[in-house]
């Protein structure tokens, strides 16, 4: 029986030519810097960010870092979450909300969320919660969770490892306990509605103060005052003249 050709299974253009199998002695030796440049992945998942609306630039100056976790709490947490989702969904990212069936779709649309890329998942049983969120993290860019139970530390570490690997952002709404520290915590600390009096007018805008605290040493704690929502429903920066 004849020996099979070694590259029989390759298409003709991929079969090595006899010349290329011999070593060429005059090939230039690359420098170490060149090798480093060649073997480095073009972009690390963690280097990429999801964009945010201009109104939120003061709060998250670099956008939502992929692979990070956010905790959003305080009155107006839902509005703030919608505002964070708005820009990313309108440029093609998907967002999913797990465990908050009451999220107002009209408000989301007014905040600028592209509803065609938003899905709402019913609250799963505590035992299935980790698997459900893990199925979403990695395929969906923005995964918003509002767990109704105490989430285990192992589950969260597994989710965050997956999020870092696949470039998703995990956002948790609510004030309850969370076993890990968030990369970024946004807390609405002060709110006041305007545009109404006793019996007349209507709710027009809400002035909020958001406190942002980060885990990284480079992150400076910041307080931002903004309109959330502004009279047309979208988040807007508060002009200097309005803040007095």
């Amino acid at each position: 029986m004849a020996d099979p050709e070694p590259f029989d299974d390759l298409p003709p253009e991929e079969r090595p030519t006899p010349e290329s199998t011999t070593l060429s002695p005059i090939r230039p030796v690359p420098t170490l810097a060149e090798v480093t440049r060649l073997v480095r992945p073009t972009t690390l998942a963690a280097e990429q960010v999801l964009p945010v609306l201009p109104a939120l630039v003061d709060l998250v100056p670099d956008g939502l870092r992929r692979g990070s976790s956010l905790g959003i709490s305080g009155p107006g947490a839902r509005s703030l979450t919608m505002a964070l989702m708005a820009r990313a969904t309108s440029v093609g990212s998907w967002a999913t909300v797990v465990g908050d069936p009451d999220l107002g779709m009209v408000a989301a649309a007014e905040a600028g969320v592209a509803l065609e890329r938003l899905a709402v998942v019913a609250p799963p049983e505590p035992t299935a919660w980790g698997d459900v969120v893990a199925a979403l993290v990695g395929s969906i860019d923005l995964v918003v969770v509002a767990p109704h139970h105490r989430v285990g530390a192992a589950t969260v570490r597994r989710l965050m490892a997956r999020a870092r690997e696949r470039g998703s952002v995990l956002i948790r709404i609510g004030d309850g306990p969370w076993p890990e520290r968030f990369d970024l915590t946004l807390a609405v600390v002060d709110t006041s509605w305007e545009g109404h009096g006793d019996g007349n007018g209507r709710l027009q805008l809400r002035r909020v103060e958001v406190l942002a605290t980060g885990r990284r040493a480079s992150f400076r704690e910041s307080r931002v005052v903004m309109m959330l929502p502004s009279p047309d429903g979208s988040p807007a920066p508060l002009k200097q003249s309005d803040s007095g």
Partner: peptide
Amino acid sequence: PSPAPAAVHS
């Protein structure tokens, strides 16, 4: 009119 409520209770 806008703004709409962010939570609509099912």
